Simulated scan of single mutants.
Amino acid sequence: MVSMRADGLLRLGTTARVSVAGAESTVAVGLSRLGHRVRWVGRVGRDEPGELVLRTLRAEEVDVSRVREDDDAPTGIVLFEQRLPDVTRVQYYRAGSAGSRLAPADVTTAIEAGTRLVHLSGITPALSPTAREAVTAACDHAAEHDVAVCLDVNFRSRLWSADEAADVLTPLARRARVVVGSPDELALVGGVEDLLRHGVAEVVTKHGAEGAAVTTENGTLDAPAHRVPVVDSVGAGDAFTAGYLSGWLDGVGLAERLDRGTACGAFAVATRGDWEGLPTRAELDLVGSAGTALR
């Protein structure tokens, strides 16, 4: 989507900063900055907002060759309003958008030989029946080609009810190798122990400012969050996911995966915007260097 971040109250009229937002695109940018080859799959309108989305992702070295430009539907928009210093009000305008028209054919051809991981968000199947079919098709195609799947539950109450989400996302979560979510989100798809019983290898719990944990058949490992001044909390969870999956792709241990995830989350909350402040691999160690001038 295109994002508009208001500088003041929308009801009074204000200026706004235009950029790009979206859970999956934030993960894609985060992984790309950490040195991984990434492809983002979706639909945008054949319009100027769509051009901004594609241009931004190309600039971040994310492959958009399989993105479909829709002639008949607009690119979605999201509005951010900083109502209080630590409270952001978000309004979505994507009903009938190009992204909501995602279909199975849009995603299956993007999973090629050599693909190691398919990252899915619980937001996508909430957008429309065809988007729901597309996510299921991606899982099917990944399974046929022995490609690992990561599902971030990412429950959005403005898109559907908890009961609807549970009915759709629980079967998807049980098919994933890695499932990510807050405690409430993981409970929505059966809980940590149930997911492990159904074959999920790693269940990652995001605790926000308190850090994160990963549970496998061997037990649970916890990691604290890095303490940094919070400028904007939007996108922190997706930044964490990007860092964690970067460690997964690199084959490092669980502790290092969590540490990389919390480092990315710290960079995200310390800067305004969903993805703009995400680190490169060379910058990961800067977390904890408060008050230092790099000369």
Rank of each mutant, 00 (worst) to 15 (best):
R11F: 10
R11L: 13
G13Q: 04
A16M: 14
R17M: 10
G22T: 05
A23M: 03
T26Y: 02
A28R: 00
V29F: 04
G30M: 07
L31P: 06
H36C: 06
H36M: 01
R39S: 15
G42Y: 10
E48S: 13
E51F: 02
L52E: 09
L52K: 12
L54K: 10
E60M: 06
V64Q: 04
V67F: 10
R68F: 15
E69H: 09
D70T: 05
A73I: 10
T75D: 05
I77F: 12
V78I: 14
V78N: 03
F80N: 02
T88N: 12
Y92F: 15
A95L: 13
G96R: 08
A98D: 07
G99H: 09
L102F: 09
V107I: 06
G114L: 07
R116A: 14
L117H: 03
L120Q: 09
L120I: 11
S128L: 10
P129C: 07
R132G: 09
T136L: 14
A138D: 05
H141V: 13
D146F: 12
V153N: 02
L159H: 07
L159D: 02
S161G: 15
A162G: 04
L172N: 02
A173P: 00
R174W: 02
V179S: 08
V179P: 01
V180C: 00
G181M: 02
S182A: 12
S182I: 01
P183D: 02
D184N: 07
A187Y: 00
L188E: 04
G190Q: 04
V192P: 03
V192A: 01
D194I: 03
L196Y: 08
G199K: 07
A201H: 12
E202A: 12
T205I: 01
G208E: 00
E210M: 11
V214M: 02
T216M: 10
E217T: 15
G219E: 01
T220Y: 09
L221E: 13
D232R: 01
A236G: 03
T241Q: 00
A242I: 01
A242L: 01
G243N: 06
Y244W: 13
L245M: 07
L245C: 07
W248C: 11
V252F: 06
R257H: 05
R260N: 09
G261D: 02
G261I: 01
C264S: 08
G265V: 00
G265A: 05
V269I: 14
T271V: 12
R272S: 15
R272Y: 07
W275G: 00
G277S: 08
E283I: 04
L284I: 12
V287G: 01
G288E: 04
A293N: 11
